[in-house]
């Protein structure tokens, strides 16, 4: 008899335990629901870099659809020019350009530089976006193709050592880049940029028309709205024009609403791929350091559909 009772008691306890276990925890159910919901979603990484230029070079970022980005870039003369030239203040090189986002992935842009009176235009396409979730992509990849047209004939003639006036085709150079970037965490982003520069004319038959280089750039965030940026372009051995040096730049970036201000030091005068990757004659060790700044201001021309409410 007693055994039976004990059994019954056990069953009863079991029943009541079961009742208590039904006292559900709302949060755990909610978390399950959230997991199920986000499992099928892809979270794309935003703002690997603040803007589409790191210092001189492009970043993996593209201008968003319907957004016009006005870029004003300035490089003063070199610091070693002394007091008479106010350490470069009296000499300035400028580029003003516009970038426009045709789609979120495709950007078209162009500009005019005072350095060697150059026009440039580019197309930039975001091939892959870093993402997590349903689609997992460790890096962002952006393709860049740009064309540069140098109209300073006198500079071109001395630079390329030609005596006759250059043909129109001689004034063109092209740059192709594959930008591979990753935002490792909210404070650190890194990118690599294998680059090919093609110059239609070089100063001697011994020099290659196709120049290969690899660029690297990084952003270290200091505060919510400012960061330290560094950029280095390494010309591969054997594809280097004589008297040119690798470009290293370091800068501070701050954003305020629709503006991004970048202040930096660089050994390059030019601000387009041809000039800062293939034809930079400045050297840090000689004090050929330019102080410069970029200002980026975005205007929303067309409000994208997904943003309308």
């Amino acid at each position: 008899m007693r055994k039976k009772y004990k059994l019954l008691i056990l069953i009863l306890i079991f029943c009541s335990v079961k009742t208590f276990s039904q006292d559900t925890n709302l949060d755990s159910i909610l978390d399950e629901q959230m997991k199920a919901k986000t499992k099928n979603q892809t979270q794309y990484t935003e703002a690997t870099f603040k803007t589409t230029r790191l210092i001189d070079g492009h970043t993996v970022e593209t201008t968003q659809a319907g957004v016009l980005d006005l870029k004003v870039s300035h490089r003063f003369g070199t610091l070693n020019q002394g007091f008479y030239n106010m350490f470069g203040f009296d000499v300035a090189s400028m580029r003003i350009g516009l970038d426009y986002g045709l789609t979120n992935r495709l950007t078209v842009g162009g500009g005019r530089s005072t350095f060697e009176k150059q026009y440039d235009g580019f197309l930039k396409y975001r091939l892959l976006r870093q993402s997590e979730g349903k689609k997992n992509m460790p890096v962002s990849v952006t393709l860049l193709s740009s064309v540069m047209f140098e109209t300073d004939t006198i500079a071109l003639k001395t630079e390329k050592e030609i005596s006759v006036s250059p043909r129109t085709s001689d004034k063109f150079s092209y740059a192709y880049q594959v930008l591979i970037g990753r935002k490792f965490n909210p404070n650190f982003s890194l990118q690599l940029a294998p680059t090919l520069i093609h110059e239609n004319i070089v100063d001697s038959a011994f020099n290659p028309n196709d120049l290969f280089a690899v660029g690297a750039g990084a952003r270290f965030k200091l505060t919510q709205r400012s960061s330290i940026n560094v950029e280095y372009y390494y010309q591969l051995p054997g594809s280097k024009l004589p008297g040119t040096y690798n470009t290293f730049s370091i800068g501070y970036e701050i954003e305020t609403g629709g503006h991004v201000f970048q202040l930096h030091f660089s050994n390059s005068t030019g601000m387009t791929e041809r000039t800062f990757i293939a034809e930079n004659t400045g050297r840090w060790s000689k004090g050929d350091i330019h102080f410069g700044f970029n200002i980026s201001r975005v205007f929303t021309i067309k409000k994208p559909k997904q943003l309308k409410m």
């Binding site: 959230m34 986000t38 979270q43 935003e46 703002a47 968003q64 659809a65 957004v67 979120n104 909210p186 919510q224 609403g257 629709g258 975005v298 929303t300 409000k303 994208p304 997904q306 943003l307 309308k308 409410m309």
Partner: peptide, 19 residues
């Protein structure tokens, strides 16, 4: 999920909201 908010006046504003 805070990332799920859509709207805003520009893509940049949305980025600032999240970032």
């Amino acid at each position: 999920q805070v990332h799920s908010f859509q709207g805003f006046n520009s893509p940049l504003q949305k980025e600032h909201f999240n970032e």
